Simulated scan of single mutants.
Amino acid sequence: MKLTDHLSAPVLPAVNVLSTGQARGRDCVFCGIILTSDTAVDLGVRDLQRAGEKVHWFPRACRWCADGGYVDILFAAAFSACGTLPPPEQLTDLYRRLRHEIRRRLPAATKASDEAGEGSLEWHAHQRNIDAAHDALADEPGDRPGSLVLAMRVAELGRRLRDLLRYPPCGGT
């Protein structure tokens, strides 16, 4: 297994922040749109623990989110977090998913930097994005952060992900 194998797919939202329809596969797990047999994309079986028992979960997404549109959902949530202050469990889930998406894009950014040639203007532009992303990933919110602190961290991660958007995620095209 390569180091980046676990980064090949986006992290799904935590089950405890999903609507009943999203948890049951009726609605897109990312954006919540109601799915039909023509619009649903099966994301594969997932195992999770419920009341001490291992159960199977079959999340589904709409074609738009499955093709990468979920990143727009992350942006919208990240950039509105300070204004709306979602519940702590939603902020924590968003924080986790943004960090994962940034880590998925860092290998491509590093590769682009290496290919640009050290010291060139292009290399410096790539390095600025890489360094800012690493700084944001290193800035942990602490053990029990308040909602506003966590919302501010989420907004910063959203900005860093926006900077990395031009780099394809691991496993992406």
Rank of each mutant, 00 (worst) to 15 (best):
M1P: 01
M1V: 15
K2M: 11
K2H: 13
T4W: 13
T4Y: 12
T4Q: 08
H6M: 11
L7K: 09
L7N: 08
L7T: 12
S8F: 09
S8H: 13
A9F: 14
A9M: 12
P10Q: 02
P10T: 07
L12A: 07
P13A: 07
A14E: 14
A14Q: 12
A14D: 15
Q22L: 10
R24D: 12
G25L: 12
C28P: 15
V29E: 04
C31P: 14
I33T: 15
I34K: 06
I34D: 10
L35Q: 06
L35H: 06
T36D: 09
D38W: 10
T39E: 06
A40W: 08
V41S: 02
D42R: 07
G44F: 06
V45P: 00
R46F: 03
D47A: 08
Q49Y: 03
R50L: 15
R50D: 13
A51K: 10
G52M: 03
G52Q: 03
G52T: 03
K54Q: 12
V55K: 01
V55A: 02
R60K: 15
A61Q: 02
A61S: 15
C62L: 05
R63S: 11
G69Y: 06
Y70F: 15
Y70E: 05
V71Q: 02
I73Y: 03
A76I: 07
A77T: 06
F79D: 09
S80I: 07
G83D: 14
T84C: 03
L85T: 02
P86Y: 09
P87Y: 00
E89C: 09
L91R: 03
L91E: 04
L91Y: 00
T92H: 07
L94T: 15
L94D: 04
Y95T: 07
Y95I: 06
Y95E: 12
R96S: 12
R96C: 09
L98R: 05
E101K: 06
I102W: 04
I102S: 05
I102Y: 04
R104S: 08
R104K: 09
L106F: 09
L106E: 05
P107Q: 05
P107D: 05
T110V: 13
K111E: 10
A112N: 04
G119T: 13
G119R: 09
L121K: 01
L121V: 09
W123V: 01
W123F: 14
W123M: 00
H124W: 08
H124C: 05
A125H: 07
Q127F: 05
R128P: 00
R128I: 02
D131H: 02
D131V: 13
H134P: 00
A136G: 04
E140F: 14
P141T: 05
R144C: 02
P145C: 01
P145H: 00
G146R: 03
V149P: 01
L150R: 00
L150Y: 00
A151D: 01
A151E: 01
V154I: 10
L157F: 00
R159F: 07
R160N: 10
R160Q: 15
R162P: 04
Y167F: 15
P168M: 09
P168F: 08
G171F: 11
G172E: 13
